[in-house]
Design a protein around this nucleic acid. Sequence first.
DNA 1: ACACCGAACTAACGCGCGTTACTAAAGCGC
DNA 2: GCGCTTTAGTAACGCGCGTTAGTTCGGTGT
Lengths: 332, 332
Amino acid sequence: MTMSDVARHAGVSRTTVSFVLNDKPGAVIPDETRRRILAAIDELGYRPNAGARALAAKRSGWFGLITEIVTGPFAAEVITGAQKRAWSDQRFLLIAASEGDPAQEAAALDQMLDHRVEGLLYATTWHRAVTLPQAAREVPTVLVNCYDAEGELPCILPDEVSGGYRATRRLLDAGHTCIGLINLDPAIPAAIGRREGYERALREAGIIPDPSLVIPGWATADGAYTAACELLDRPAADRPTALFCGNDRMAMGAYDAIKERGLRIPHDVAVVGFDNQELIAAYLRPKLTTLALPFEAMGTKGVEMLSALAAGQPLDTHRVTIDCPLLERSSV
Amino acid sequence: MTMSDVARHAGVSRTTVSFVLNDKPGAVIPDETRRRILAAIDELGYRPNAGARALAAKRSGWFGLITEIVTGPFAAEVITGAQKRAWSDQRFLLIAASEGDPAQEAAALDQMLDHRVEGLLYATTWHRAVTLPQAAREVPTVLVNCYDAEGELPCILPDEVSGGYRATRRLLDAGHTCIGLINLDPAIPAAIGRREGYERALREAGIIPDPSLVIPGWATADGAYTAACELLDRPAADRPTALFCGNDRMAMGAYDAIKERGLRIPHDVAVVGFDNQELIAAYLRPKLTTLALPFEAMGTKGVEMLSALAAGQPLDTHRVTIDCPLLERSSV
DNA sequence: ACACCGAACTAACGCGCGTTACTAAAGCGC
DNA sequence: GCGCTTTAGTAACGCGCGTTAGTTCGGTGT
């Protein structure tokens, strides 16, 4: 079934069929003719060949999306967000996972370029700097949850600072004045940004940040447990009544330390996590109040920006940050 | 950069370039010519246009994959498995989520057919019967984790029976003779199959299955909690020393009931779950021994079968079942 | 000397479609 | 009857490539 079949069946030329299908502006097609063509399409069960169409129009409609792993809640959310926006724009996503292997990444990129993707989305599992393979420069590229060291490529990042601020602010609003921060690896952007927000919130509340209240938990439950012990074993006057943890798994460790000491959450010690890992946050007792990383929104925004770039429009912002919403549960 | 550019640069015809690129059998190309062509490709940075190639060869290389949701561990694993196999076969996956909405599903299917997918993978979140939109008949289709009521389409299913058997067998091997089954909704295939495996294992061990030891937990933690209470509150002689739960969340409920009674896992009561939801199974205390649904393998197998079908080869088995591996942790 | 053959290519068609340039006919004022 | 404009279309090219049916040319056998 091709367009020619439809044209023959409707008694018009192929061009006319094309005009009708594409609502060609400037072409005048009487209703009667249009009706005949649509009827023919229907009767023959014709469907346009997207590939041929792309070839003729020199517009593939594809975007590429490279993630580190397809599995894992993070990637899945980015994919979801990007998918929705893409399909609603009549664009399509060619998805690949690098599995952390540069060779696979390069192969995926090659395939994508062979398919003439009009843009590339490059997403990482955690917020950090990346360097892309050279081939990525051939096509508009947007980084998601990462940035390039040279700062040349547009990127979409979670707003770590406002996240840290919001978490701390929530604890301050609940009346806490001595707030511990069990942080991630202090060298990574998430840890730096969140600490900045934490300190800003404290200062705004007239509290001078006490560096000894900030301890790295190194992103593990055990590390956070140790860190929490240290904070909770301080003399009563100095003991924090609230803990802000770098992620939900670390909050689990903090929970253990708190419960072990016979303290109650949130009555004696309040806890705020980060990441909103549903299966952890929603099943801890009490349920964990935490901040969500806006992965789905980042995926959506990524496709939006790519669409603009692919259309040749300049970007208004080169570096977009997206807020991390606070999810109220029962630990504050 | 087109093939013609390469041909001109190498001083040969486009046809010859095509022959070299496709290793055309029967064509004799001297090494010197081949070298010149490859050099030209390299110098010009030429890459073939996959779309044009598909159009000319009448072979798109695409498979469609429709899931209910992109998020969620199940879909992600299926996608991972399918992706890996597809990319290694030089095939590509057009992925879409129906989000449970028939309209979206139909739209996705339309787009896929417009892209001339050579086959369709249709995956569900839980094992059940489905009816596909009529359009799906236009192209080879394989069902993943589901089956059609008419039994016409090839499908790939988890082997629920052997899963139930394996779980029960593990408990029998550990010396348990009175084993409770907290089942899913008794009307669904997973519940029926697992119970069958459970009873088979018992009979093989010379134990007559006691129907009163089988209680539906209705797939929720609370339901399983109630069911576990009922089983654990039986008179001591009749009290099960092991519980086989329909999924990991239900195992959580069972854990609560067991701990509440001061019983210890696995010493007093052993527990086996199902589904291997990492974030639950690996973080329960003690860690949960459970069976994994082989989603990744199912995705892989799906693409394999589709490749065969798309190549016109007949399938050896219309209905494939894949084993659910037992993951040993600490609850038995 | 001629017929024959394989090696090494190439011209040309078609895949299904978008698009540009052109045409035929109809309507209109004078 | 003539020029002009609008309406309703169409012929033909090209997108980048796979493929078939050749063509050219340097040997080989007799």
